[in-house]
Design a protein around this nucleic acid. Structure first.
Lengths: 194, 194, 194, 194
DNA sequence: AATGAATGAGGATTCATTCAT
DNA sequence: GATGAATGAATCCTCATTCAT
């Protein structure tokens, strides 16, 4: 039996290792060798699969963004009514899957990567656009014309909570508390207009 | 008598150049040579005055943080009453001096630097602590026990607005709009309790 | 299957090149690039295998010391009786393998290296201790209580002859004459007590 | 009053500082700045007086060699008879002035310098030649034809004792013991022929 | 006389990337 | 598929030396 189907396994291992390494060091100054080592292979193989370091980073970004997207979709599927849906989106943003030490560190660095690498910027904008659309969709029903504005505020709050968590560097981020902070803002906006 | 007194001039030029370069490239991957060149001197001289690249970065951070501090102090000096003071703090956060393209890019990267360099983390924490104290001081009078919570929310909002601006990369950041977004949150909190 | 097993070959080539370069220039101010070039590879590869310049130097030292050790052991294996053994040790010290231009130059510089690099000092002390032990072992039988003293004198004489040879810088060191000088001292000591 | 006559003072201070620094670090990798700082002046001034680092080193060498020469001359002046004179020369070699920590370290490094800098080699050869002449002069009367040979052996012994002391790096070198070791060899040679 | 200012040249080290096997 | 081998390019940093004052 030929060793087929290794590609997705290897790639997944590299993506995971990349996030861990970026999260661990808190910086993009991670070498391909470090990543490959943690993924249990040679750096040459990493290049073989991804072509370049930049592509490895982008794959890691896509992974995190898709994890996030999945979490949000899952949460939305169970929520009934605009308010519940909005709450679900926010909660999903601070789930244990997303609001982990490494992921938070990676997140911050992806913002930096986006300053340099166009594709990274594009990815981040896609994420922002989706979040915005999702928020506006339900906000429209609750705050009408102010939906856009409130959506922007909410998104800013989410990012702000993330970035501040990155600085705390405590062992275990408290997703619940973080979600509460973001929810607090949203609630104020909603209750004001209701 | 030797040519004398260049040190502060050179250092200031380097700090300025550092912020410009970090802002321009949107990353800490800036070489000392680039910085020195932009500051109109050799990289050797940059090292002579600062000792290391890290120290150059830290000096740039200190500069930005002190600019920010000055702006806040200046605004506070003219404000009467807690509400006006809180508004002043927020407005100061998005003044033309602080909310410039380069500075925003630098800000983001300083958060990254703080993940690696202890002194950078310390500086950022000092900034956060000061902001927190300032906010709580006036919030106490307006929202009482919830002061701490609201202060944290406000700070998160400020950081969130900054980080999102970094991604826009438009020619001229709109400080007024940014301030408005942060103020909106604060207003909601204040009006709720009043 | 990758090209494999180059490490020992490369390392050996680098060690040899290091000794040659130090011997040629008569100083430790040799660049890794020079060494690597002479060894037929890039300086990056030299670092890859040794990690640092210091490690390259230490490897070269170990090589020379082990050559010396082997020479002494070989000579001792064929010698019968304490006097013959002592003579063998001295002769081995000035064998063609050891008493070469480059090796003499390297030797001197290793003494300098030992002033700065602890591991180098340790290596040199190990060499001295072994020589001392070897000498004392046989001297004890011939001069009894004075063995320690005579051993120290002999060792000093060996080092002295080496250092003076370094200054001559003639094309071909005369190992026989050098050995004779050291033997002369030893003979005097032995004959005096006999 | 103009500040005249500073030159010899400055030069002397630099020479002293050079020996101290070389002795302290045990290597020639001493910067002009370090030397100048220890001598209480700027590195620019050091260059002003000596022209180059190499010249500073050479001046330091000359100083040490002349100290040594003076010590020997002084000792010879008081000695009566060939045997006493020879003893005096050896004793002078390990006087407190010469056999100091820094001076020993400097000595070793001057041998290294001599490998690179022709003038340094010349100086060292002059020293060796003088010592040789001095020794032979008196040895001739005591051992006749063997004078040359014994002189070379004695000189080697002196250098050997120095180099080994450099490795000990103990706080206070024991000049008396060192002298005794060299004298022991000489005595053997003399007593053998007498 | 004296020094702060300034730099060019160089050197150790790192790393993404390529290649032969 | 997989990796050890190999390197060019880059970067930080140091330092002897020069210069203007």
């Amino acid at each position: 039996m030929p060793k087929v189907g290794m590609e997705p396994i290897r790639k997944a291992a590299l993506v995971k290792a990349t996030i861990l390494e970026i999260g661990r060091t808190g910086s993009l100054d991670v070498t391909v060798s470090q990543i490959a080592k943690r993924a249990g292979m040679s750096s040459a193989l990493a290049h073989h699969y991804f072509g370049s370091k930049e592509q490895i980073f982008l794959a890691a970004m896509r992974h995190i963004l898709s994890l996030y997207g999945a979490e949000v979709r899952g949460a939305l599927a169970m929520a009934e009514g605009p308010r519940a849906r909005l709450t679900a989106i926010l909660r999903a943003s601070f789930t244990a899957v997303n609001f982990r030490r490494e992921v938070i560190g990676a997140w911050l660095n992806f913002y930096v990567l986006a300053q340099t690498v166009p594709e990274a910027k594009r990815l981040l904008r896609v994420y922002q656009a989706r979040l915005h659309t999702n928020l506006v969709y339900d906000l429209r029903k609750l705050v009408g014309a102010r939906a856009e504005e409130v959506a922007r505020g909410t998104a800013a709050m989410i990012d702000g909570v993330y970035i501040r968590e990155a600085l705390k560097q405590q062992a275990m981020p408290d997703g619940t508390a973080a979600a509460a902070m973001a929810l607090q803002y949203l609630t104020l906006e909603l209750d004001k207009t209701e």
